[in-house]
């Protein structure tokens, strides 16, 4: 599948944003993060900025962005519609949380409840995003059981790394986040490896023979058109094996290994060093997870490529 930057950016940014929002909301509800209003401002502002920026970029991916509001209408069948609805709905508890915490400086049950609701909203939105991909049968790498948990896990992981940095920047040592971050990074890493292992041995759900209704071995001799068309550009994207291997190495390092090491360091050390390590972990993870998402697209094969002998 063609790795369109806007979509990669959209899923990574909203992922991190919802991860951050979900963790912040929950931790706030349970008082596990600094109750400092400035901290609240930064954590929520960053989370919502990421979410909003991501959603905006997804709108610009559309052929007719001005009609984006129509995307809310088909929640009965369409995961994309459901995502739109869930994403929008999540703004409500998030806003209450923000107003209560940052502006009113309150941590009453309503605000705490809003934190939990925002976290639920974020998670639901992540599920809908994952389901958009997981529901596409023609793309086995996406319709795999790893897709939805993956979306949630990587979102929480990037959210946790971010939150960890923010918590440390706010000067709060020994927050539970300090242990959660490396734990999620580690879990994410294990999961990614499992997902890759699963995907690498995935066969197409169908074959060229079934795609053409012919028996035996079917080989493409000529395309219907000499040059690449929409289908080939969009669905026939291919990444060279060697190239993909290099990129996977990079993902191992930047999305997981390095952030894991740095978050662990930040957890066991303290002071400026811990702050620097946590910030660095969050920064390094950005290109790492963007690359992970790039590969999620680029390595996904659509059944239409069978028609083109690819």
């Amino acid at each position: 599948m063609h790795p369109a930057f806007s979509v990669i950016f959209f899923t990574t940014a909203t992922g991190a944003g919802y991860g951050l929002l979900a963790l912040t909301g929950i931790f706030f509800a349970f008082g596990a993060v600094p109750e400092d209003r400035l901290f609240g401002f930064f954590a929520l502002a960053i989370a919502l900025a990421l979410v909003t920026g991501g959603l905006f970029s997804s709108v610009f991916h559309l052929g007719r962005p001005e009609r984006a509001p129509r995307a809310f209408s088909q929640w009965k069948t369409s995961w994309l519609s459901r995502e739109a609805v869930a994403a929008t709905a999540t703004y409500v508890p998030a806003a209450i949380l923000g107003i209560g915490w940052v502006i009113l400086g309150s941590d009453n049950a309503i605000v705490g409840g809003a934190g939990i609701l925002a976290a639920i909203g974020a998670l639901v939105t992540l599920v809908t995003t994952g389901m958009i991909y997981a529901s596409l049968k023609p793309i086995p790498q996406w319709s795999s059981p790893y897709t939805v948990p993956g979306y949630i896990l990587y979102a929480l992981m990037t959210g946790a790394t971010l939150l960890n940095a923010l918590v440390l920047l706010a000067g709060a040592d020994h927050s539970p986040v300090a242990f959660l971050a490396p734990l999620l990074v580690f879990a994410g890493w294990i999961f990614k490896n499992a997902a890759w292992r699963h995907n690498d041995q995935l066969a197409m759900p169908t074959s060229a023979a079934s795609a053409t209704g012919l028996k035996g071995t079917v080989r493409s001799v000529e395309w219907p058109h000499t040059e690449e068309n929409y289908l080939m550009k969009e669905m026939g994207y291919r990444v060279a094996r060697k190239h993909a291997e290099k990129l996977r190495l990079f993902v191992h390092a930047a999305a997981f290994a390095v952030p894991l090491a740095l978050t662990l360091l930040s957890a066991v050390t303290g002071g400026t060093f811990a702050v620097a390590a946590a910030c660095l972990a969050a920064l390094v993870q950005v290109p790492g997870i963007l690359t992970e998402r790039w590969l999620f697209f680029a390595e996904a094969k659509h059944t239409v490529s069978l028609y083109y002998g690819r």
């Binding site: 023609p138 795609a211 289908l231 969009e234 659509h302 239409v304 028609y307």
Partner: peptide
């Protein structure tokens, strides 16, 4: 249509 391309992804036949 908003041109989200999702339907083209969902069609196995291109």
């Amino acid at each position: 249509c908003i041109g989200c391309k999702l339907c083209s992804w969902a069609c196995p036949y291109g």
